[in-house]
Design a binder for these strands. Structure first.
Length: 205
DNA sequence: CGAATGATCGGCT
DNA sequence: GCCGATCATTCGA
């Protein structure tokens, strides 16, 4: 099942992680587990730029068992556990040795919504089904077991497609990221991006 | 080896 | 709107 519109290495391995974060808005995140293919439009992202970024796990080039995936070449999934409960899905970008990543925070359900409802134990479609990095991973069936997966490999269970959904620059809202209160010089970096007016972003404004 | 920490969510007041 | 859950990872001894 080769997919010609799957994003490839030339997309992921660029240096400008902020630019990639913006371009991921409107792209379609697809997961394929247990013979069920779930998909959703990416509506909210957040950029994390390794060594300079106090909010990043890789700040100051911290290199551990967990963060080593971020130093790999772009195109891999980096999934980690937060608060012991939530699986957060990131995309590794840039070239090998550069610990840049984009956190996918929210999607708009697109395909196999029933499966996502089942995974979340929801009865009907509500914005909070996939609005938020932790719950989005549940809806798509993503866990830390998928960390390090190659998104560009033809047989991977997770990938991102370009379906030519156009997001105009004026419809991209830039805002400060969460957890930057302690990182003053980083507080001015508006590296959280979302699509204006979309109901499926986490907590509007 | 033990203790502190956290890029969140959901339930309760 | 606030508060507690819950555990892999990290760091210090």
């Amino acid at each position: 099942m080769d997919n010609p519109i799957r994003l490839n290495l030339s997309f992921y391995q660029r240096e400008d992680v902020v630019k990639i974060s913006k371009e991921l808005l409107g792209k379609v995140l697809v997961s394929h587990f247990d013979n069920v293919k779930t998909a959703g439009i990416i509506v909210e992202t957040e950029a994390y730029r390794g060594p300079d970024d106090k909010a990043s796990h890789a700040y100051n080039n911290r290199y551990t068992n967990r963060t080593k995936v971020m130093y790999e070449a772009g195109g891999l999934a980096y999934v980690y556990l937060c608060y012991g409960i939530h699986h957060l899905f990131n995309v590794v970008t840039a070239k090998k040795g550069m610990a840049h990543a984009v956190l996918i925070r929210a999607i708009e359900p697109l395909e196999e919504i029933d499966a996502m409802l089942y995974r979340r134990n929801f009865d009907n479609l509500k914005p909070q089904l996939t609005a938020g990095p932790g719950v989005m991973s549940i809806a798509l069936g993503i866990t830390i077991a998928n960390s390090g997966m190659d998104l560009t490999h033809p047989n991977s269970n997770i990938w991102i497609e370009d379906r030519k959904i156009v997001v105009k620059p004026k419809n991209i809202i830039e805002s400060p990221r969460v957890g930057v209160a302690y990182a003053e010089e980083c507080a001015g970096w508006n590296w959280r991006f979302r699509i204006a007016g979309n109901k499926f972003t986490s907590k509007a404004k």
